[in-house]
Amino acid sequence: MMTDWFRPARPLDAALTAEPRFSVASDSLFFDGHFPGRPIVPGIALLGMVRETARRSLAGVPLPLAFRRVRFRALIEGEATLVTRLTATTAAAGTEGSPAGPAADAPAAGFPFEVRWGDQLAADGLLVQAPCGAVKLPPFGPDAVEESRSIEDFLPHRGRMRVAASILRVQPGLCEVEAEALPSWPLAFATGADSVVLLELLAQTAAAMTGWEERHTPGGGGRGFLVGSRFFTSSSAEVPFGTLCRSTVHSLRHRDNYRVFQGLVSAPDGTLLAEGELQAFRA
């Protein structure tokens, strides 16, 4: 149940200005493995609240499946109450032809959002309609390794917050993991999980890669935290349970402790499920 993860503190209504309030309780399943001994509200919790706000309040409008220019601006440790604000605008469309730009047939509109934690801005960005198809990944090289060790050797996520199941292939700067959408996944509904969880899968793929690099590359790797996503797009609102996912991420560029990743999630038959760009800082 979604309410095992976060709960609307009061009923959501159709008014965009209602500024719904959500609580992440101390026993929220987000804290089952994110992280052991240090409960931190994950970024997908905040984006899940934004999507839930949109789902309830954008009657008659297709649920926007893309996020753009997302910033996670606060490290929220432990239980918290968060307030979402979603604004309708017609001036929020992306630049035509830009990597995360809107489809030609998409409405030229977007929804700027904010998630507030007390008097702090916890996250902000734009919710839009946009197609997948911007991410192009390099091929694996001859040095790619089929990693047989447990992904938990390389990844700090545990319990129900670990959605990546195992590393398939990895080399410095490029990693592929597999996963299966399960009812135990975060933000699960009756028949599938909110596709925002695929952003978490991409983040865990990047984290597994950096954990692997830490062991195999001089000066490489290091644990990090997500500070933003320039774009994230999914092909549907939900990932049906049982869907097999392959998540591939590559390191696009870095500067000091800052690193940018791009990645995509696809089904075994090659169907694109999601793609995105992640911005992270090495701790």
């Binding site: 500070v227 933003g228 320039r230 696009l252 560029r253 870095h254 500067r255 000091d256 800052y258």
Partner: peptide, 13 residues
């Protein structure tokens, strides 16, 4: 963060 991104872009591209 945008500024860091820009610097990373200039360095790599």
């Amino acid at each position: 963060i945008d500024a860091l991104d820009m610097v990373g872009y200039l360095e790599s591209e």
